[in-house]
Simulated assay, not measured.
Amino acid sequence: MNRPARDAAPLLSVENLTVRYQLGRGLTGRARTLTAVRDVGFTIGGGRTLGLVGESGSGKSSIGRAVLRLAPVTGGRIVFDGQDTAAFGRRTPLSFHRDVQVVFQDPMSSLNPRQTIATTIAQAVTRHRRLSAAERDREVLGALDRVGLSGYHRDRYPHELSGGQRQRVAIARALAPRPRLIVCDEPVSALDVSTQSQVVNLLMELQRELGVSYLFIAHDLEIVRHISDEIGVLHHGRLVESGPADQVYRHPSDPYTKALLASTLVANPVRQAARTARRRASAGTGIAPGGGL
């Protein structure tokens, strides 16, 4: 997309981030730890998108959870709008929850199956703003319209919607508090190809309309390149390559990035044959990812 930054200062700065999980004690009685993220740094400007891409276990979701204050920050720091989030202490302020929202991979598990769509969106609105019943209803209908759903969807339950419609509801819920940053954690990986494209295009349209920033986490470099201004490539918890989206996509410098790109399926049979050949050539290096990215 390569748009000029809208804000001079970054909205989000991740500096030398390390995330380490405690796994308990093993058979020897020693405490075990898993370092999921190692010394990672990046910034996201206002109205911009950073795409984090890597195979399963690369640490990308742990970074998203750390930004959301759902994973431990063992080292480094996360600065949102000029404030170190570590200063919040144990209790995250409501203003941060308003400004930083999330869209998860599986909306069926993140939406309350016992609540109508209207109730789900209304709760996200009224948690942060005092509204009359009429104002709340207008907000719900406006949110549904913004993501391409109709007013009659308001009385439906999640199981009555398709996967793509449920993800649109999840996006509407994330937008309801009027956030400045949304962490999109594999938001299209559970959808079919045509619906993936629709949802990605919707996110891009909403960004142009609202100026919201995205941390977009995915395993598919083709999708990440389409939506992102900048791309960061993660491998074993480390950021092995980063830069403008087109540069990383067209001229990757790290062998792992090249392997990721070669493993991406494309519709053009000539390009796909070339990628398959490159993937086979890199298989001997031990870096070519498998099919379950």
Rank of each mutant, 00 (worst) to 15 (best):
Asp39Trp: 11
Thr43Asn: 12
Gly46Lys: 11
Arg48Ser: 12
Thr49Ser: 03
Leu50His: 02
Gly51Pro: 05
Gly51His: 11
Gly51Leu: 04
Ser56Leu: 07
Gly57Met: 09
Ser58Gln: 08
Lys60Asp: 02
Ser61Leu: 06
Ser62Trp: 01
Ile63Leu: 09
Gly64Trp: 05
Val67Tyr: 10
Val67Gly: 01
Leu68Gln: 00
Leu70Met: 09
Leu70Cys: 06
Ala71Asn: 02
Thr74Ala: 13
Gly75His: 10
Gly75Trp: 07
Ile78Trp: 00
Gln83Asp: 12
Phe88Tyr: 15
Gly89Leu: 01
Gly89Phe: 05
Arg91Pro: 11
Thr92His: 05
Ser95Ile: 13
Ser95Lys: 13
Arg98Thr: 00
Arg98Cys: 05
Val102Asp: 08
Asn112Ala: 05
Thr116Asn: 07
Ile117Ala: 02
Ile117Asp: 04
Ile121Tyr: 01
Ile121Met: 06
His128Tyr: 11
Arg129Val: 10
Ala133Trp: 13
Ala134Arg: 15
Ala134Cys: 08
Glu135Val: 13
Glu135Lys: 14
Arg136Leu: 07
Asp137Glu: 15
Glu139Ile: 00
Val140Trp: 02
Gly142Glu: 06
Leu144Tyr: 09
Leu144Gln: 00
Val147Asn: 00
Leu149Phe: 13
Ser150Gly: 14
Ser150Ala: 15
Tyr152Pro: 09
Arg154Phe: 02
Pro158His: 00
Glu160Ala: 15
Leu161Ala: 05
Leu161Thr: 04
Ser162Trp: 07
Gly163Glu: 03
Gly164Met: 07
Gly164His: 12
Arg166Trp: 10
Val169Ala: 10
Ile171Leu: 10
Ile171Tyr: 07
Ala172Ile: 02
Ala174Gln: 05
